[in-house]
């Protein structure tokens, strides 16, 4: 078993190495895009069962954004919802035999955490401008500016570590159990991994909403 911090390279494009997780993400992107296009083509005012299911997902995301951020969900729906769906599908891809979930790769989780970090800045500046966004670091007191700045970095790092640790550990636990008893024994752990993957996706999305809400809170007040 390789180190969880290492990533296997499938091929290289010039100086750029294409790792397994990147290829897996591309496959997931293609599948999600195809599903999205099919759903979009089949949209009707009177919904089918499938459309009703996807509308339920959209409505649940909107409700969660509205409950967590207390804002109109439209500007944040695509980012938060896509993060949730992407992480959920990546986590559940571990159930496909021979496939390693991209979220078990540190670089992928770092990319997601980096996007959240940038999104916090982006939505904060867009909501209240640079001045107001920077003013959020002085809340509740200018004395807190260093701590708030460090917190913005550490919470991003915590996002990365939390997702990576949970998914990677699950993958490795299942791999170890498989090496010891390959038949039927890993099934409960795989079921637990399904739950863990959904919970981690939900936690990542909710934390992203909380961070963004903290950035736009000054503008709201």
């Amino acid at each position: 078993m390789n180190s969880p911090l290492d990533s296997s390279v499938l091929f290289t494009v010039g100086p750029v190495p294409i790792s397994t997780s990147v290829a897996t993400v591309w496959a997931i992107m293609v599948i999600l895009s195809i599903v999205a296009v099919v759903v979009r083509r089949g949209l009707a005012l009177v919904p089918s069962t499938t459309q009703a299911l996807f509308e339920l997902v959209v409505d649940a995301v909107d409700s969660q954004i509205r409950a967590t951020m207390r804002v109109d969900p439209a500007p944040y729906r695509a980012f938060i919802g896509s993060l949730f769906v992407f992480i959920l599908v990546c986590n559940w891809s571990a159930l496909v035999p021979g496939m390693e979930p991209p979220t078990a790769n540190l670089a992928t989780d770092a990319a997601l955490a980096l996007l959240v970090f940038v999104a916090v800045i982006w939505f904060g500046v867009r909501a209240g401008g640079v001045r107001d966004f920077l003013a959020t670091f002085a809340s509740p007191s200018p004395v807190m500016i260093p701590l708030n700045f460090i917190e913005s970095l550490t919470r991003t790092f915590s996002l990365l570590v939390r997702l990576f640790g949970n998914v990677m550990s699950g993958v490795y636990v299942i791999g170890i159990v498989l090496s010891l008893a390959g038949l039927l024994v890993p099934i409960p752990l795989m079921a637990l991994e399904l739950l863990t993957g959904a919970v981690q996706a939900y936690i990542f999305a909710v934390l992203a909403m909380v961070f963004i809400a903290g950035a736009i809170e000054r503008d709201k007040t």
Partner: peptide, 17 residues
């Protein structure tokens, strides 16, 4: 990749639905 996926889902999934 994630940015592209966000854009794709926004265009073909979240916004239409």
């Amino acid at each position: 990749n994630v940015l592209v996926l966000v854009w794709l889902l926004q265009r073909f999934f979240w916004r239409p639905i």
